[in-house]
Amino acid sequence: MEILVCIKQVPGTTKVEVDPVTGVLKRDGVDSKMNPYDLYAIETALRIREQRGGRVSVITMGPPQASVVIKEAYMMGVDDGILLSDRRFAGSDVLATSYTLSQGIKKVSNPDLIICGKQTTDGDTAQVGPEIAEYLGIPHVANVRKILEIKDSSIVVEMDMPETVEIAEIKYPCLITVEKDIFQPRLPSFKKKLETRDREVKMFTLQDFEDRDEKSYGLNGSPTKVERIFPPEVNNDRRMLKGNPEELRNKITVKLKELRFI
């Protein structure tokens, strides 16, 4: 069975600030890590491989440094890694990112099952998985919290919906996005680190794709444009009170009464 996991390198911290004068992000470009939700996706893939055999590959798009997260995936037991890297991918929004990944997937493999984490911690959109599925013309289900059965031509999963729990069978090829806690992700192993030290990371650029039109990628292939960024507003209509505890709790009581909560 061929399983492909989409992963992403994200900033190690979300502590970013906007320069109030220039309106530009002040961000340290060095500190980064694998998107935490992707660990659950990799773990799910490895568990399925343990049961059914086959190969697990990971794919990511990013600068050359993003190969670090592929190396990390190797340390968890992933067989192959693909990095899509090209200056012309710069400035991609969700649509351009999904398109680039789908082009990369078409180029390298024909997976039975694609697994994505539920979302990333930097973009937070949870949209890339479904959009990749659309570009590949395969069905997808989101919010998978349990794998119930892995059959020869389909997979049976349990989905966590707000009011219900749904069990569905999806034919391959398909894409699923998994909830965190579907499985506890294993830690990277030192033994595997040594074993995979020389394993290559396959690199592809726009030139390798079926669609080589620059207009489909990066800033040019992105329908959404960020017009401006600004710090979140603070609530100006506020009062702060200090004093001794008795005074303070009496004031809260009066306030609660005034607002008719008691």
Binding site: T14, K15, G123, T224, K225, R228
Partner: peptide, 17 residues
């Protein structure tokens, strides 16, 4: 929408689609 974990807000448009 909030971006980067809500640390900044981004104003986004879809000007030509």
């Amino acid at each position: 929408r909030p971006a980067f974990g809500g640390n900044i807000m981004a104003q986004i448009v879809t000007p030509n689609n």
